[in-house]
Simulated scan of single mutants.
Amino acid sequence: MATLTIRIPDEKHNRLKALAKHRHVSINRLIDELSTQALAEFDSEVRFRMLAANGDPARGLELLDKLDAHFSKG
């Protein structure tokens, strides 16, 4: 396991400590969870962009129209 040292403003550090305390986790665990979430979002974006680059724009617009019609009925 790697060790990472970062420099952040004191105010941000204090807010992260408060958030960790609120979630009943250590700051280390909080940073691990937040970095996992950021990486998952990045992986999803990369996957979406790859699929979009290989996809059929007309079919994509058709699917978006179906979603719009479905959710506008509500």
Results as ranks from 00 to 15, higher is better:
residue 64 L to S: 07
residue 73 K to R: 10
residue 47 R to D: 14
residue 72 S to W: 01
residue 74 G to H: 03
residue 22 H to E: 11
residue 43 D to H: 06
residue 41 E to I: 02
residue 56 D to K: 01
residue 15 R to W: 04
residue 6 I to G: 04
residue 3 T to A: 15
residue 73 K to I: 02
residue 39 L to Q: 05
residue 71 F to L: 11
residue 58 A to M: 13
residue 46 V to G: 03
residue 51 L to R: 12
residue 40 A to C: 10
residue 34 L to A: 07
residue 24 H to K: 13
residue 61 L to T: 09
residue 11 E to F: 05
residue 11 E to H: 08
residue 71 F to Q: 05
residue 18 A to M: 13
residue 32 D to K: 15
residue 43 D to K: 04
residue 35 S to M: 13
residue 39 L to R: 10
residue 42 F to P: 01
residue 20 A to M: 03
residue 68 D to S: 13
residue 7 R to P: 04
residue 30 L to K: 01
residue 13 H to Y: 12
residue 34 L to E: 04
residue 60 G to W: 10
residue 28 N to I: 11
residue 6 I to M: 11
residue 18 A to H: 12
residue 47 R to F: 02
residue 18 A to W: 08
residue 24 H to R: 13
residue 42 F to N: 10
residue 21 K to N: 07
residue 28 N to F: 08
residue 31 I to D: 00
residue 31 I to E: 00
residue 35 S to W: 05
residue 7 R to F: 14
residue 65 D to Y: 05
residue 36 T to P: 00
residue 24 H to E: 14
residue 36 T to N: 05
residue 33 E to F: 00
residue 20 A to N: 02
residue 26 S to D: 09
residue 58 A to R: 11
residue 1 M to C: 08
residue 73 K to A: 04
residue 56 D to C: 04
residue 60 G to D: 07
residue 43 D to M: 04
residue 34 L to C: 11
residue 50 M to Q: 14
residue 32 D to F: 02
residue 29 R to T: 06
residue 50 M to W: 06
residue 9 P to C: 08
residue 3 T to V: 15
residue 16 L to G: 00
residue 46 V to L: 10
residue 49 R to F: 03
residue 26 S to T: 13
residue 35 S to C: 14
residue 68 D to H: 09
residue 19 L to P: 00
residue 8 I to C: 12
residue 69 A to M: 09
